[in-house]
Design a protein around this nucleic acid. Structure first.
Lengths: 241, 241, 241, 241
DNA sequence: TATGAATGAGAATTCATTCAT
DNA sequence: AATGAATGAATTCTCATTCAT
């Protein structure tokens, strides 16, 4: 990588709809007063958003504090003021990104669905989530290169994952009870397989694209993969007659 | 990360049996000539081996030229002499790693097997390969963070992947002809799914381990996953009666 | 102190006769070749000499790595190349400074002198040494502000001091044996008092000068103090008739 | 010095170095008024006390404005409000510390004692003072590293020292008159020697401890040193028969 | 072919100080 | 009188790369 190439890779901007970084001032309506100069929460959020992009695009070592600061509404100094260090910021990013997922998960209410439909819903949600949250996928990848050193300190991390396992356990139990599902499946293993297929096509789409000249994020492929994974999982869990 | 902590992650030494980096000099008896003082090939290989470990452990930006040189039998200067730059070395590593795979693949002779057995053999080979070649998995991951920028220039890269697709195409065609397989499967998609499951559990084992307290590389889990993936793929490709 | 005031205090350059930093090249006569571009030992010595001045003038925190590098024949980078960090350099300076004293001490041959004369010689040597080596005095002072944190890691430190105590023990023993000295004196305590008087007038000469309008380093005062301290110590150790 | 460096009030009196810094607000009952929200004097004193510790522990450059502010009941802003700058605060600390000494000195009434007893009392006072006021000793040391730049501006500084000299002059004169003391002693020189021995063992106790494995502030050593210094000075000033 | 010394351009971090409320 | 947020200018340290031998 040559000196000075600070530009973010084009693909990394992904879908970060939830936090419109730039037009924040307009949302500054609390207490009825107009735009305020000092708003720590906003400053922090702004830094976090930019950092999320940079880290997810460049990795922990590849990211440049200067680059982050530059694209921020404030200065590098504030970044240290609020997050202490590059690593502290990186960890805060991880924390935020993992936190974001939780909210969505809760809305699924899978336990109210029939086992087969529930399983389908779960796979589709997992697929859609990874497909849309590329930053999340990249950050997880980066963490694995770091040996998960930082994610271990993220309190919310373990909790979140346990939730998914409980959902799967519940689905399997009900499916077995109703005679629809096999009884020899380990929920964590199943989760791993679902994740694998949803994660890999996003995380490794560059080498995949290079190898086969196909972009897995193309809408048509996207739909086909979605159906395929659902199909594969359902065939696997269903009891053979 | 504290200052000076340049140490490689402990886990990264993994399974790199194939390349005994250190006692190279003793093996210097090839082609009948006695041990020579200067052996360019040897030096290059030594550098490459060390670099493979460092890059796979730390990523492209995370890797340190100094760290590589230090663990080498030679000096930093030679590294530049032979590979021109850090990036050049990285690319040479990619090239070597992909080259290594080819040999193995040829030995499978899948085309001589019955479709079902061939498919099983292919999945098992893919599984075993990823399970053993952690460096390979890591390097692919790293390449994806780099947007596959470097792997594109690796000549052997595309070729290798096309081969796999041909193998799958052949299996599917024969399976369809014999009435054993479904006829609506895209070979590249199928390859993607097989890869996903074999790759993810290795590449993301750290976050997985942190999340669920399970190490996917544990022998027992390893065996279970292997069977599970074979099972899942076979159920998927087989024609339902 | 305002930004940019990097200048050393005028008085701190004091008497650094022993290491003529600048005209080193002339001494480059080994192996008969003319001035060589690469001479690591010389580079290191050069850095050390400059660093000694800066640290002794400004303290550990007050010293600026940039300021040191600037007055060096090389660059800041080499400073890190050889000494690792600012602290590493500081410690190397301590090591050197303490090492320098040893040589001188050995030349005294106090054990060959009559107890009274030996004691006089010791005090005079101690006086002269402190009087001349202001950098040494300042560095010791600085170390005490640092809680002796760094000097503890200097291997030569303890050894050196033990030597002095042995010398005093020997003097006292012989003086007692000959009936010239009192027998109730602790050698370490005595050493402390001698040091005190030799050290304080140098180390605290600035506040002393401010308080009394007298510069203790003035030749006349210097001579008077020297005689006075000898006198005081001798009166103290001598047996009263 | 920077703009707005407001002078400290001269009445920052009281020998309160060990002042309980934290629960100051409760003691706010003076002049009969109830606890007030804002008490400038209190705030200033609080800042000064904390600053004294920090400066004496870390030196002028080593001290951190943030560190001082943090341990204060108020904020960094007030520190600048009252003292203008870091240097201004440092100077205020010096001023306070020197002011503190005066009170004690007056209580000795040395002029009423017999010359020998007076000299003993003076040495013992000097010893005890340094032994107890480590912050004072450290700050003087620090000032000497700064070339006494700041202490020069402390009005009380010179005055205090002149007083001691007068005391010594008086003692010497009376001792000479009574035939007890030698007549060839310079009072300032004598003061220097007394100070040296009392100061050094406190100021350099860290390197001393490291060198000899003895802590000079240990009660037993302390008592021995005290007697030793008195003894040494008295032997020196007394006329030999 | 091989090597230890040297380097300039960054990169992370810290510090005293000021602003807006 | 008091405060939390903000800042620019240093300051220490690192990195890929090249030079002289």
């Amino acid at each position: 990588m040559k000196k000075g190439s600070k530009a973010t890779e084009p693909d990394s901007n992904g879908i970060v709809q939830e936090t419109p970084t730039n037009d924040v001032r307009r949302s500054d309506v609390r207490r009825g007063d107009a735009r305020r100069k000092y708003d720590p929460e906003q400053t922090k959020r702004n830094i976090l958003d930019v950092a999320t992009q940079e880290f997810s695009a460049m990795g922990l070592t590849g990211a440049r504090v200067d680059a982050i600061a530059e694209r921020t509404n404030t200065t590098k100094r504030m970044l240290y003021y609020y997050f202490g260090s590059k690593e502290g910021l990186y960890q805060a990013v991880l924390e935020k990104v993992y936190g974001d997922i939780r909210a969505l998960e809760q809305d699924l209410h899978i336990s109210e669905l029939d086992p087969v439909e529930g399983m389908r819903a779960l796979v589709e949600f997992t697929f859609d989530y990874h497909d849309r949250q590329r930053d999340f996928v990249r950050l997880v990848t980066i963490e694995n290169i770091n040996g998960a050193k930082y994610v271990e300190q993220v309190k919310t991390f373990k909790g979140r994952n346990v939730t998914v396992i409980h959902t799967i356990e519940d689905l399997l139990a009900r499916g077995i009870a109703s005679g629809q599902f096999r009884s020899d499946i380990d929920p964590i293993d199943l989760h791993l397989m679902i994740s694998s297929m949803c994660f890999h096509r996003v995380g490794n789409r560059h080498t995949f694209g290079t190898a086969f000249g196909r972009d897995p994020s193309h809408p048509r492929l996207r739909a086909r993969h979605r159906a395929m994974i659902v199909d594969m999982i359902l065939r696997y869990v269903k009891k053979e007659d």
